[in-house]
Design a protein around this nucleic acid. Structure first.
Lengths: 98, 98
DNA sequence: TGTGTTGTTCTATATTTCTCGAACAATAAC
DNA sequence: GTTATTGTTCGAGAAATATAGAACAACACA
């Protein structure tokens, strides 16, 4: 479908990460992807429309929290765990505990 | 001047904490208060107006990040370090590293 | 009492963000 | 090919947020 842009984590601001995780819907998405990586959008625990979900995924991607790859007609997303832990240690643990 | 409301941290949502720290100005405030507690508003490193700063402090207070006490004509603020660490471990370290 | 300092509150504006429907593109399956 | 699935993009509306000026209240100090 398209190619996704994934920023280098060293260029991501802490404020961007915090902002990405300031929405309960996005926290739920990251939490779900931590428990079960490589989920397609429609497998995520949200009630919002496709358009809104696509927006939330883009915010999470822009903050370096998740990465998305195309797999046929689907696009599977996962949390960038190792990189996030290296650049923003503890953030994912907070989400997982939530 | 007034009495400040400080929420119980167990009733604070992770999303609220993240939102409070999603603004570079507020990150700078918390960072400064971590280095030097009990600062008055005019001792904080910001360029915004009094009204805006007052708003930012209220957001930080509402998220349980800081506590403010009246001291004469000033109001001195500090980070609620122990409580934050107990309820949202690692958050303050991220701010301090920033 | 008057003056300066400190910070809040009110009001208003500009910006950002969230949300969705509709249209679209790409793949999959029949 | 036709149809269904998947997700993006566009356009627009609603809601939240950031910002500051002005008025105000409380305190300090001379």
């Amino acid at each position: 479908m398209k190619t996704y842009a994934h920023p280098e984590l060293k260029e991501v601001q802490l404020a961007s990460v915090m902002h990405a995780l300031s929405d309960p819907c996005r926290i739920a998405i990251v939490s779900a992807l931590l428990e079960k990586p490589n989920l397609a959008c429609n497998e995520l625990p949200t009630e919002v429309s496709k358009a809104t979900l696509s927006h939330h995924m883009e915010v999470l991607r822009g903050a370096g929290l998740i990465e998305t790859r195309v797999e046929g007609a689907k696009c599977l997303s996962s949390v960038r765990e190792d990189e996030m832990e290296a650049h923003f240690p503890g953030v994912l643990a907070l989400v997982a505990r939530d």
